[in-house]
Each structure stands twice: as C-alpha cells, then as structure tokens.
C-alpha cells in the first residue's frame, strides 16, 4: 500500500510538473492525463473505487477533447518548435512556492483530529444515497449548472444563429448548414 502510494504520488506530481515543462502540446495533455490517472489511483487506494474509476473515465475523455482543441488553436502543435509562452515567470514561481510553503506548514503544524467512524461497506451505494437524499440540492444544482453550461457554451462558440440557419423568416424547411450532422 505504502509503496503504491509513493509511486502514484510521485507520478502525479512529476507528471503535473511536466505539463509546464514539455514542448509538445499533445504530450502536455497526456502528461496532465497521467497526473489525473495517478490521482484516480490514489482515490481508489483510499477506498473510493467508484469515484476513482469515474475520474479515469471523465479525464480521459476530457483530455482527448482538450488535445483536439489545442491542436486547433496553437501554433505548431506537434512541438516542432520549442514552446515558451510564459509571462511573469519568476513572479508566478514565487507565488506558487510561497503557496506551497504555507500549505505545507499548515499541513504539518496542524494538530489533525483523530479518525472517527468507519467507511460504509459499499461506498458507491452510500454516495448514491447521499446524492439522492441529503445532498439532493447539490445534485440538482450540478444538473442545472451543467445544463446552463451546455446552452452557454453553444451560444458562445457558434457564430450562427437560427436566422442564419433557417432564413430571415425562419421558414426554411432544412437548415442551411455548412455540414450535415446537426439536428435540423
């Protein structure tokens, strides 16, 4: 267990650091993914199997999509040219190191309370019950927020509205899209 912890923790931190050190955009994304996967492993190590697997599932999807966007927007995505796009590097470093020092001091100096209670036998079930019971409000908020995100992102990202697609009087039967595949 301890060995596994050390391996995963080191992978998580090193991969995380590699995110801002590697030259290739694609490799950066997958370094971030490796960091997430290591954290997912740590979460599973703590007995949260379901959440660990869900993190794997979501982060893989998220990172691949991220890779696609990155390739779309960044110059020479394959890292043919060394990439250095920083501003205020030293200041950021100072802030980051300072934050870490404060956090570490807090972690090490705090007198943490002792463990109370034991995990439920089926964590997945407990979590589901919580989300559908006591934490229902959280779940509803998340749902509504996600829906708002879907609408908001689509509005932001597309330049075409329904008047572009269906004509000025919205009387076109089939949408005028540059490519098929949309619900029209």
């Amino acid at each position: 267990m301890t060995v596994l912890f050390w391996i995963l923790a080191v992978v998580a931190v090193v991969a995380g650091f590699a995110v801002f050190r590697l030259n290739s955009m694609a490799q950066v994304t997958f370094a971030l993914l490796a960091s997430f996967l290591a954290v997912a492993g740590l979460v599973m190590l703590l007995g949260l199997g379901y959440l660990g697997v869900v993190i794997v599932l979501m982060m893989v999807i998220e990172m691949v999509i991220m890779a696609v966007f990155m390739v779309m927007y960044m110059m020479n995505p394959a890292g043919l040219m060394p990439m250095a796009m920083y501003h205020n590097k030293s200041g950021s470093m100072a802030i980051a190191v300072g934050t870490f020092a404060v956090l570490a001091a807090g972690i090490l100096l705090t007198d943490w309370p002792t463990r109370r209670g034991a995990p439920a036998p089926d964590q997945t079930f407990a979590l589901g019950e919580a989300l559908m019971g006591g934490q229902m409000l959280t779940m509803m908020t998340l749902g509504v927020t996600l829906f708002a995100t879907i609408v908001g992102t689509v509005v932001l990202a597309t330049a075409r509205g329904r008047y572009d697609r269906f004509g000025d009087d919205l009387d076109r039967r089939r949408a005028d899209d540059p490519a098929g595949g949309g619900p029209g």
Partner: peptide, 20 residues
C-alpha cells in the same frame, strides 16, 4: 524553416468562419 524540413501550415478560414 521548420525542423524536419516540413512546411509550415497556412492559416485560412474554415467553413464555420474560424481562421485555422
């Protein structure tokens, strides 16, 4: 000049109007 002798890609407007 790109490493590997590969040509640099050009920018152009795509069918959604993004310069890619």
């Amino acid at each position: 000049e790109m490493p590997g002798g590969l040509p640099m890609a050009d920018l152009g407007e795509d069918r959604d109007g993004l310069m890619l």
